[in-house]
Amino acid sequence: MFQAKELECVKGYDCLFTNINFTIQAGEILQIQGTNGSGKTSLLRILTGLSQPETGEVFWNGTNIDIDRESYLENLIYIGHTNGLKAELSAIENLQLSRQYLGQSNDKPTQQALEEVGLTGYEHILAHQLSAGQKRRVTLARLSLNTAPLWILDEPVTAIDVDGVSAFEKTIETHVLNGGMVILTTHQSLNFGKAKTLSLSLT
């Protein structure tokens, strides 16, 4: 169970949002909507613990995420605005390094994870030579290596083509139907099939 209580975020003199409360159970998706600059990314960063909220707390299974940080991070995968790919490493090298960063992973070969996101033949291309959409696909491939139940995704399908988006929707649906949780922001309307989707609007 993932819970946010009375979160408030202040940037400079602006109050981006205040009194954000929600609870997500296993098997639910939370889609965060809002205009540009409404604080979606700031909210996600607070939920991961990268940023501190002005007030409020975030709980993972009833424990504040700052208190038992390690077990929270073992259960979390975060994909931010930036892809987190090192420019001079190839797609597969980047993915291998990401796997080591995880607390635990499944035994799926890195090669296969890249195939699943449609990057067969691009394994050994350096990240800076890939197109924006291909880079995003390498980043999304991290999801399939991971066994973490909680996914926090910031605009995951930016620059991804139509086929990629529908594959992504499938991945999310499968994850959630297997008892995972997803929190994501997006400007596109995504269809997660049978998965239960909640939504939160920031104004």
Partner: peptide, 22 residues
């Protein structure tokens, strides 16, 4: 610098491993 800009520093900090060791 590069790791900060490409976001991999963020991933390093969010790794459950001790970030000081990495």
């Amino acid at each position: 610098r590069e790791d900060y800009e490409n976001g991999s520093l963020e991933q390093l900090i969010l790794s459950p491993h001790a970030s000081s060791a990495l």
